[in-house]
Design a protein around this nucleic acid. Structure first.
Lengths: 126, 126
DNA sequence: TATATCGGTATCTTTTTGGAAAGCGGTACC
DNA sequence: GGTACCGCTTTCCAAAAAGATACCGATATA
């Protein structure tokens, strides 16, 4: 999921390498951040404020600690969420969206708009 | 990949079922249409005009007929692309984005905008 | 007759992704 | 001493996505 890895993606031959990089890769970057089984729900959960690890897990049924841990690390690596450890007992760990992470909101909003129309169109057609 | 299947997705408990449906599912619908290894490249290829099957395949190195066939069917099912068969020999089959399919462009544009900034941010930080 | 093209399909294998279960160090509570 | 909670990690496994390869009927070309 690292951005460097993604540079290995091949480009269509009808696009010059440079064109492909600038046209395709950024879109894939954005998609990678949002797609996957849990990412969206975790981000959505964090838009309602700081959350502790177990708290997120409880809010999202079926989410295992392994997956949550992995997704939160992804979010951290991409500077979209931050992790704060408090020296209590038992230890308290809080996650929250960074200011930067909140810039995802309008993007998700656009996906939502398109997706809603699509949903109506496809469901309405049967 | 069918929209009906997606209704089986579970909702976070802190959202009522209705809220979850209207908040989350449409976003997932949009993401499903764009994510995957080849979708974006195929859509991009079609934004340059009608294309024949083999033509698309040649433009996108590594793309097997099985995957191309599957993705084109997906696009058709979602009314994003149309398929035209011409009675020539050998048979000619052309695919093109529908008018509706072209509504994806601004959405992809938004993903591109966010992704470009992200790319600069993450690459620039090393 | 042999070979190639088009638009695929069918079968099998590999890779990627996600899930289930257990466990760990630290603390707290009974 | 036993059990429970927090925030994870580890290991092993199943399901899903994608790749490799071969093949098909119809037609054209050498």
């Amino acid at each position: 999921m690292e951005i460097i890895e993604q540079d290995k993606r091949k480009c269509p031959t009808h696009l010059s390498t440079g064109e492909c990089k600038t046209r395709l890769l950024p879109v894939k970057d954005a998609l990678d951040i949002l797609s996957g089984k849990w990412k969206l729900q975790i981000i959505l959960s964090l838009t309602f404020g700081k959350k502790r690890f177990k708290q997120i897990q409880r809010e999202i049924p079926g989410l295992t600690p392994k997956m949550l841990s992995k997704e939160l690390k992804d979010l951290e690596m991409n500077e979209l969420a931050s992790r704060h450890v408090y020296d209590t007992s038992p230890v308290t760990v809080e996650y929250e969206l960074t200011t930067y992470g909140k810039t995802l909101k309008p993007l998700i909003g656009e996906l939502h708009k398109w997706g809603s129309k699509h949903r109506k169109r496809i469901i309405g057609r049967k």
